[in-house]
Structures are given as C-alpha cells and as structure tokens.
Amino acid sequence: MAEASLCVQGIRKHFGGVSVLEDVSFAAPAGGLSGMIGPNGAGKSTLFAIVTGFQAGDGGSVLFKGQDVTALPTVQRVRLGMARTFQVPREFGSLTVRENLMAAAPGQAGEKLRNVFFRPGWIRAEEAAIAAAAEEWLAFLNLERVADAPASSLSGGQRKLLELGRALMVRPAMILLDEPFAGVNPVLVGEISERIRELSAKGIGFLIVEHNLAALSRLVDRLFVLDRGRLLAEGAPAEVLADAAVREAYMGGSA
C-alpha cells in the first residue's frame, strides 16, 4: 500500500447524549481510490465534517500528508490540499457555473481590493489564466453547455459535477466526495466514475462516501464500512462485501 495521505485516529463525536462516532480510525492511501459505506445515520457525513474541519471532534486526531491538522481550521486544511464536496450540493446559486469554478481558484491577486483598484492590468491577465483553467475542467466534466447558466438552474447531477469541478480548481491532493452519485441518473453515474478514475490516474486521491454499492465497488480499490459510529470492516471491495457482519449491518440495516 502506498504511503497514507489521510490518517484518522480514534475520532469520537457525540451530539447531546447521542454518540455518533466511537473511536474511528482508518488510513486512506495517497493517490488511491477509497470508498466508505454505511447505513443512513452511521456518521459518515459527520466524519467528513471532522476530517475537513467543519466540526470539531470530541477526541482523536486527523493527520494529512503526515501533518497533524486536528487543530487547523478548514481553510488551512484546504490549502494543504484537502478538498471536499457536500452531500447536498452547495453551489453558489447566483453565480454562473463558470464563475463558480473561477471563484475556487486559489491565491487570486484580484481578491485584494488594492489590486482591484490599482492593478487592473495584472488582474485581467490573472483572470484570463483562471478562465482557461476553468474552461479545461468544464470540458472535462462536460459542463461546457451550461457554463454561462446560473448554477441555481442546474440539475442535481450537474450540481454534483459542478462541486467536483470547484474542488478540482483548488488543485487538491485529495478529494472527499459525499455521495457523488445520489440523485444522479445512471448514465451520468458512469460518466462521473470515469472522470474520477482518470483523475486518480493523475495522482489525486479520493475518499468517496456512497450508497450506490454497485458503482462504488467497481470504482474503488479499498472499502471502509461504518456502522453506528464504528468502523466495521475494511479491505478490498469484494472481500468486504462478502463479510457476513457487513451484510448484516448494511443490507439488513438499510433495507
């Protein structure tokens, strides 16, 4: 296994009296494709929130690229190369699709008012470069046709793609996807999977939470199972899915 890029150790979290995560530890390899499954309410999104710094855990630590990021705020984790999407897409609804992607470009000089008013030439050049990068990802994700539509007009599947595009603009080392296939038609599921595989080949790591087992197990090379806040199993998809305990928890639990 390649060197671990994301390493989660002993994460705990409770809301009020309810324990949602109990001592969760796992490691996702750099550049690999990892998946995570688990019944509704297992704590997957909460785990994502803690890994990305949107919520604080009650215990445990998060290591990213060998660095302890447990105490870092979200923005600094992102700058280290950790990008994410949300289970319910959170596009910038009043901006166009293209603007959504351009907004995501890191380190823009044009985001400083000083430059906006006194260095217009510099900003124009920078904007051209950002637009070109956005154009590439729009083409890659097949969003060119809707590039100038307001993001709020997109379909559910397109929003998932938009969020992926925005995450890619950040130039991340690893992307955490929360249910990228939910509410997406089967044709588009195949397309998104294909894109993810291509990106993985370019060295970007993925951790994907998904309920669509068929699509996920075809995509990833490592699968984690979370059930009621505990890590139940991990391993190659075929092995994990054959595991009796997993079948019990997952199939029994959600059906």
Partner: peptide, 18 residues
C-alpha cells in the same frame, strides 16, 4: 465574485480554502 459567493454559501467558500 467572492463576496457574492459568500452571500450564497459561506461554508462552501470555506471549503475552497478562503
């Protein structure tokens, strides 16, 4: 562009590292 993004969804802005 960024202030309008903030108006639309502040958490999503944070997820972009800003």
């Amino acid at each position: 562009r960024m202030i309008q993004a903030i108006r639309d969804d502040e958490d999503a802005v944070r997820a972009l590292g800003k």
